[in-house]
Amino acid sequence: MPRLNPDNIELAKEILGRYPRPKSALIPLLHLAQEQDGWVTDDAMEHLAELVGCTPAEVLGTCSFYEMFKREPVGPYLVNICHGISCHLLGADELLEHAEQSLGVKTGGTTADGKITLEEAECQAACTEAPCLQVNYRYRYKVANEAFDQLITDLRAGKLDDEIPPHGTLARRATRQHIPADRAAGPAAVDVNVEPVWLSRNADASEAKG
């Protein structure tokens, strides 16, 4: 089972460099591991423990707390049907039932072809668009049964792959934050008690070129 590959180690080091303490990078790095493998493997967790300087058990402790981290393989398409209150009022239960029947799996299961994992999810903050769902955390609004079936057909045919990257990829690489070295202010060291220079400045801040 894989550890982070060389490219991802580089990215991991960049992410680590933004935080005053390395363990703060743990959740972003777990996302990175999940992006690489589609789920979070034991080896990846051990590797992250080395990178952030804690025990693998602590990594597992964090990883297991958060819903989004999968510790066993899921399909490349994770379909999360919202069952928050607004979606509940507008047919989420019926949509979920339809999804279970049409996919032939229960909530939490993966289809026989291994492509689609179905889950019910807590409120996704699209309450005005109920009932809604997410595929790999990309939204689909006001989903009727027929629209759901079409979505599944399109996913299986790979028609939506430009819009919906495989499970694990939250933000595509080009859109990731990258702080250029010459622009970085740098992380604020915890144990250096220095007042920021601008704080005591008085009202005639003439150096502001604004």
Binding site: Y19, I27, H31, E67, A185, W198, E207, A208, G210
Partner: peptide
């Protein structure tokens, strides 16, 4: 903006909780 004010904004992703 050319002043003595410097700060990084670090985008941090949650994970569902």
């Amino acid at each position: 903006l050319g002043t003595d004010y410097s700060i990084d904004i670090v985008l941090h992703w949650g994970a569902g909780a």
